[in-house]
């Protein structure tokens, strides 16, 4: 498909999709969303580029290769299990750390969130690989 409108639009749509992906990832713990859905949305951004240009270009323009994304995602998943084990809890037990920021603010970071980031990266990688498999010219 060779459409100028699609190509121009894809820049902005991809930005929106990627922001939505990050948003879904961040709100995921207690509300609908999470790493999996975020990953699908981010994968969709790559798909959009693939439709506007070609899938080969879309893959080449990714700075991180899908295989690397899967490998790092899986390693992050594995790493997220370590704090729970060190604290003597069951595997995959959620541990939360609080980072104070200024007066009244604090950031809570927990192993479930790190786990979600791992899932996020893995899902992007898998989605892109699926699309490349289906779109070999």
């Amino acid at each position: 498909m060779n459409s100028v409108i699609l190509k121009i639009a894809s820049r902005y749509v991809r930005l929106i999709l990627f922001s939505a992906a990050i948003f879904a990832l961040l709100r995921g713990h207690n509300l609908p969303g999470g790493g999996f859905i975020g990953g699908l949305l981010a994968g969709l951004a790559v798909v959009y580029k693939g439709f506007a240009y070609t899938f080969r270009e879309a893959r080449q323009s990714m700075r991180l290769k899908p295989e690397f994304l899967i490998a790092s995602g899986l390693s992050i998943v594995l790493l997220s299990m370590i704090p729970g084990i060190l604290n003597g809890k069951n595997l995959m037990h959620g541990i939360w750390y609080k980072i104070p920021l200024g007066e009244a603010m604090e950031i809570k970071i927990g192993t479930p969130f790190i786990f979600d980031i791992g899932v996020f990266l893995t899902v992007i990688g898998v989605t892109v690989i699926f699309l490349l498999v289906l779109n070999r010219e």
Binding site: E67, A71, L74, L78, M81, L91
Partner: peptide
């Protein structure tokens, strides 16, 4: 859980 985790770790290593 290690019978599941060891193959998973091996998969990560083998990707690299």
């Amino acid at each position: 859980a290690l019978p599941i985790l060891i193959p998973l770790i091996m998969m990560v290593i083998l990707m690299i």
